[in-house]
């Protein structure tokens, strides 16, 4: 599967904005919504990407492999769920730390085009050689 890099970058920018709002307002609902977006992104149906596709009709100059960004959405989901658990259980450091981690990754992707989640993949494999982290097409 191929992905439009412009749409992914747009998605990262929206994610950055949403996570900033989560940190400023402390809204568990908003973080839960973002967690759902991450889950949809992991399934290859990110609503942000779909919004971009609805707004921008032109074809991308080049496309990229869709698996790395999908894996990264999965990493984002783990952070969002941890942050949500922190918010709901009243563990503020967990809520702030996990949400900040997700924000850092989204910001690096939006502003610099670096996919932090994609790069954690090899580190994870080094730690857990037996783990199967396949993202199914």
């Amino acid at each position: 599967m191929r992905a439009d890099p412009r749409a992914l970058r747009f998605g990262a920018a929206v994610t950055t904005l949403v996570l900033v709002l989560v940190l400023v307002t402390g809204s568990a609902w908003l973080l839960a919504a973002q967690a759902v977006v991450f889950a949809l992104g992991l399934a290859g149906r990110s609503p942000y990407v779909m919004l971009f596709k609805a707004l921008v009709r032109s074809a991308p100059k080049e496309t990229e492999d869709a698996r790395p960004p999908r894996f990264a959405q999965g990493v984002g989901l783990v952070f969002a769920v941890a942050g949500l658990a922190g918010l709901l259980a009243g563990i503020t450091p967990l809520a702030l730390g996990a949400t900040a981690g997700a924000l850092l990754a989204a910001f690096l992707n939006a502003a610099f085009g670096f996919c932090l989640g994609c790069e954690t993949y090899l580190l994870l494999r080094r730690l857990l050689p037996a783990a199967t982290l396949e993202v199914h097409q």
Binding site: L23, T25, T92, L96
Partner: peptide, 23 residues
């Protein structure tokens, strides 16, 4: 209020990491 500081610190850290990485 803490949240705002966390946002600012995270974005500052991200900018530093991004610039170092680009170079």
């Amino acid at each position: 209020m803490t949240g705002v500081w966390v946002v600012l610190a995270t974005l500052a850290l991200g900018t530093v990491i991004g610039v170092v990485r680009l170079r």
